[in-house]
Simulated scan of single mutants.
Amino acid sequence: MSLSPKKYFSVTKKEWNGLVVLMILIALVLVAPYVYQSFHKNETIDVKDFNAAVARLKGTGLVDSNTTANATPFRFNPNNLPPQQWAKLGLTEQQIGTIKNYEAKGGHFNSKADLKKMYSISAEDYKRLAPYIDLPEKAGYVEKTNAVVEINSADTLKLMQIRGIGSGYARLIIRYRDRLGGFYKKEQLKEVAGLDSLTYQDIIPFIKVDEAKIIKIDLNKATQNSLAVFPYLSYKQRNAIVEYRNQHGDYKELADLKNIPIIDDVLLRKIEPYISLK
């Protein structure tokens, strides 16, 4: 038996209710965006508050400020540089405070690279300041000059300014100088172990000697131990000098040393610049 067209297109009450609910849900979905916008209007950004926040950040040094615009570059050594000078170079208060805390804890800048390692110094700051930093590029590097160096008062860095003298030669020269008490003539540099003749010839024009800076030996107070470092005397000679004084009393003049058989005129002339008789 076939269904009539009327019965085929009929809708039950349950189906009709479901259709109504579906239409309501579709309407809600379409209307929802408009309802949401009406209750959540976009808030306008307060530019004044934003600018104030940026200003506060600049005060902490966490963002770049306009201090570099008024910076006055000059050649400087960063060690113990006053805060006012750092400010002239364009650094913020926080950057300066970080550097001063580093120094207060015993920190020292030996080269430009040391300043570059400071976390408070940005890459831009370092690039701007590097040409004015009065320090070598790297630790251990010393700029060579044509200046004449007084050898009895120079430290290793001063000696290393002479072309041909590196840290190794500088240490050898100072070590031997300290044993002698100082140099009284340039030719004594030939006695420095490890210093070759070619280097000697190269450095001689840039060295001068001040005999007044020689540390002399008081022969009437010297002991065998105090004489032990002096390179011109052997053990037997040191012992003889002390024993002669013990037996005959203080030395009155340098010539008294001639009474010691193992001290000849050649040695006497060699040690004369180092002897004092008080």
Rank of each mutant, 00 (worst) to 15 (best):
Y176L: 03
I217V: 01
G181F: 00
E150M: 11
Q161A: 12
V142E: 08
K208L: 06
V148H: 02
L198K: 14
A193S: 09
E191H: 07
D202P: 00
Y169C: 03
G181T: 10
A147G: 10
V209A: 06
G168P: 01
I217W: 00
L180I: 03
I133T: 09
D210M: 12
T156N: 06
Y176M: 04
L198T: 15
D202G: 02
K213C: 11
A212L: 09
K190Y: 12
F183P: 00
I217D: 00
G164K: 06
A139D: 13
E187Q: 12
P136S: 10
P131G: 04
L189K: 00
A147K: 15
L157H: 07
K190T: 03
E187Y: 07
R163F: 13
D178Q: 11
K138F: 05
I151R: 03
A170E: 07
Y141V: 13
T199C: 01
A147N: 14
G164I: 03
Y132E: 11
I217F: 00
L195C: 03
K208F: 02
M160T: 07
L219M: 04
R175E: 15
R171V: 14
D125T: 04
L172D: 15
D125C: 08
K216H: 00
L198M: 10
Q161L: 05
G182V: 07
R163Q: 11
G166F: 04
V148Y: 08
I214K: 01
Y141G: 06
R163I: 08
Y200C: 02
T199Y: 06
I217T: 01
A130V: 13
G168L: 14
Y126G: 02
T156K: 06
P136Q: 09
V192F: 06
R175S: 14
A170F: 10
V149W: 08
R171T: 15
K138T: 13
K158R: 11
R128T: 13
L157M: 10
A154W: 04
A147L: 05
L172A: 14
E150R: 09
S167G: 12
P136G: 08
R175H: 06
L172H: 01
D210K: 05
M160W: 07
L219D: 00
E143N: 10
V149K: 03
Y141C: 03
D196M: 01
V142R: 07
Y141L: 07
D134K: 13
Q201P: 01
E191A: 11
Y126L: 01
T145F: 09
G194R: 13
V142S: 08
L135N: 05
Q201G: 06
D125V: 03
E191D: 15
L159I: 05
K185W: 08
I151T: 05
I214H: 00
Q188Y: 09
I204G: 02
P205F: 07
A212Q: 11
S197G: 02
T156P: 03
V192P: 04
Y126A: 05
Y141N: 14
S167V: 12
R179M: 12
V149T: 09
I207S: 02
K186Q: 09
V142A: 11
